[in-house]
Design a protein around this nucleic acid. Structure first.
Length: 304
DNA sequence: AAGACGAAAGTGGTTGA
DNA sequence: TCAACAACTTTCGTCTT
């Protein structure tokens, strides 16, 4: 947490704030309100080194996979001054040559040039999808490996970035659907899935099938439902799993139905329409799932 | 009038031959 | 590659509150 700045929930005033660097969300632990998304992590980024180990301490910002050259190349500025502000000795043509070589060295390989473009798209896409730094970095790592294995040739950078981010999402369990990706890129769904499949196979990445629980906090937050509903939903899902009601069903549908049931069990009833709208599953599916849940778990819900 | 219900037909993904 | 299949969607008329 940044020094000197109190973070309080704007709704209930609680100081009990949860930071989720993977999702890039900051939310209130008491009322569940999502306070901000995509905040910049204000913490120090490098490790503490003991007095005896000063040699490892780094100056300058930490290296990040989100810069194509990891932030390690040099700068020769256009004012012809060095780092301390003194004029750099030498004539114009010498400085011109220095800059030319510096420019070439900076983006020396096709990989770096490609990476530079890709990272712009990573940043843009993560922004519109509300994904945090951890997902961006994971995406960058996956993309770079794919690039080095020559998998980008024949596919567009945008396609590969979307596929890499979709995979990073699955790895980090930050539930974003293919629909979300399709909505915010110019890439066709089929191209994303095809590339995703190839990357997964070549990089030998194993991802687990998404679980309904992964969607619960997002759905509840979008529906303005508090933490009691979140935990009630998770309880319902846990029992539903024991009765084998989740196998082979789409996790979004199961999650949406469980949230619907939980909202009805409390005094925070939401309609099937509302839950359908925020979850992207239809009312019919919510109905089918919730009937199974209510029937098998012996729950009574008030529809009035 | 809003919300829930359920039947019927259509769609897209997975699986296995 | 193709057919079979289950899950899901769309659409629409009906019922309940």
């Amino acid at each position: 947490m940044e020094a000197g700045i109190e973070v309080k929930c704007s709704d209930c005033g609680s100081r009990n704030i949860d930071e989720d660097s993977i999702r890039g969300e900051r939310s209130c632990m008491d009322c569940g309100l999502v306070l901000s998304e995509n905040h910049i992590d204000p913490g120090q980024e490098w490790s503490e080194f003991g007095v005896e180990d000063q040699s490892k301490a780094r100056a300058g910002p930490p290296a990040s996979v989100l810069w194509h050259d990891k932030g390690l190349s040099t700068e020769i500025d256009w004012m012809n001054r060095d780092f301390s502000g003194k004029r750099i000795a030498g004539n114009r043509s010498q400085l011109y040559r220095m800059r030319k070589w510096q420019r070439r060295a900076r983006t020396h390989s096709t990989i770096d040039r490609n990476m530079e473009k890709a990272l712009m798209e990573v940043t843009r896409l993560a922004g519109v999808l509300g994904l945090g730094k951890a997902v961006k970095e994971e995406t960058a790592v996956i993309y770079r490996k794919a690039l080095e294995l020559n998998m980008v040739k024949g596919r567009s950078i945008d396609t590969m970035v979307a596929a890499s981010m979709y995979l990073a999402n699955q790895k980090l369990k930050t539930a974003r659907s293919l629909d979300d990706f399709e909505k915010h890129t110019r890439v066709q769904r089929k191209a994303i899935t095809r590339a995703h499949k190839v990357i997964k196979a070549k990089l030998k990445v194993r991802v687990s099938v998404p679980e309904p629980e992964e969607y619960v906090s997002r759905y509840c937050s979008l529906l303005d439902l508090g933490p009691e509903t979140v935990s009630l939903t998770n309880e319902i899902l846990c029992n539903a799993r024991k009765k084998d009601l989740t196998h082979g069903k789409s996790p979004t549908g199961v999650a949406a139905a469980a949230v619907y049931v939980a909202s009805r069990l409390g005094d925070t009833a939401r309609t099937q329409r509302e839950v359908a709208d925020i979850s992207g599953v239809t009312e019919v599916t919510i109905r089918n799932r919730y009937k199974e849940i209510v029937g098998q778990l012996g729950l009574e819900i008030d529809l009035s």
